[in-house]
Nucleic acid binder design. Sequence first.
DNA 1: CTGTAAATGTGAATTATTCTTATTTACGCC
DNA 2: GGCGTAAATAAGAATAATTCACATTTACAG
Lengths: 131, 131
Amino acid sequence: MEPQTKRFRKREAILSYLQHTDAHPSAETVYAGLKSTMPDISLGTVYRNLSLFKDQGMIRSLGSVKGVERFDGNINPHVHFICTCCGAVKDLHEMHIPQELNSQAAVLSHAKIQACQLSFTGICQECAENK
Amino acid sequence: MEPQTKRFRKREAILSYLQHTDAHPSAETVYAGLKSTMPDISLGTVYRNLSLFKDQGMIRSLGSVKGVERFDGNINPHVHFICTCCGAVKDLHEMHIPQELNSQAAVLSHAKIQACQLSFTGICQECAENK
DNA sequence: CTGTAAATGTGAATTATTCTTATTTACGCC
DNA sequence: GGCGTAAATAAGAATAATTCACATTTACAG
C-alpha cells in the first residue's frame, strides 16, 4: 500500500490535493491544507510544484482573484463563476463553450491557441445575504 | 480650451489614456505613458485612480497577466486573446459572446452576475516566429 | 485671505511570489 | 553495508507589484 519511495510524496500530494477539491485553491490554501498531514511541507515546495504542473499542463491557473493566483486540478474545459466579494470560485459544469470558438479565435488572432477561459464575475448568494 | 480647473487633471488623463489605447496597459505602463507629458505624475496616483475607475465601472480589469494587472478602457463586452509569452493582449471584436449565457450563468450560480469574460490564451504570431 | 475638502506626491509597508543555498532523500554501484 | 549522484525539498532572503500613511498642494467658497 505504502509507496516504496517517498521522493515524490510532497509533489504527488500537491497534485492529488488539487484533483480532489473543487475549491480552486491558492498556493497558500494548498499549503495550509496539506500541512495538517504533512507538517514539514514548505510553501516553496507548493509554489515550485504548482508552477511545474502548470507548465506540464496537468493543472490550470485561473489567474488572480483579489491578487492571489488560483489553481484548478480539473483541466477539462469548463466555465467558472467568481465572487468578487469573497473570492469563491464555482464550476458551472452545466454550461458549455461552443467548440467552434476556438478555431474562430485562432483565425482572428493569427495565433496558436492553447486554452480558452470563460468566467462570470459577480456577487454570490452568501455575500449578498451577509451585506 | 484649457480646463478652468487642474484639480482632476491627472485623474482625467489616466482615464483618457486608457480610453485611447487598445494595448490593455498595466499601471506601470499608464504611468510611463503619461510621464512624458506630465513629468510630475506619481505611480501612487495611477494606482489610486485605476482602482477608483474600476470600482465605478468606468474601466475594467483583465486580471493579471504574468503577475501584473492589466486594464481596459473599453467596457463594452468583447473577447480577448492573451499571449502567454509576451503578455500582449488583443481584442477579438469580431467574436461575440452569446447573450443568453449571462442569464444562464445567473441561474446556475445562484448569484448576481456583474460581468462576463471570455479570453483565449496562446502564443501570438510574433512570439512564434522569434523562438 | 482663510478654511475646507479633495487630489496628489512621496516613500514606507505589505504581500504574493521567486530565488538561493544548504540539506535531505532515493537509488544505483561497489 | 558505505559512497556518489541527482532530484526534491526546507528555510529564509530577495524581489516586485500593490497598497497605505501622511504631508502637501489645489480649487473654490465664504
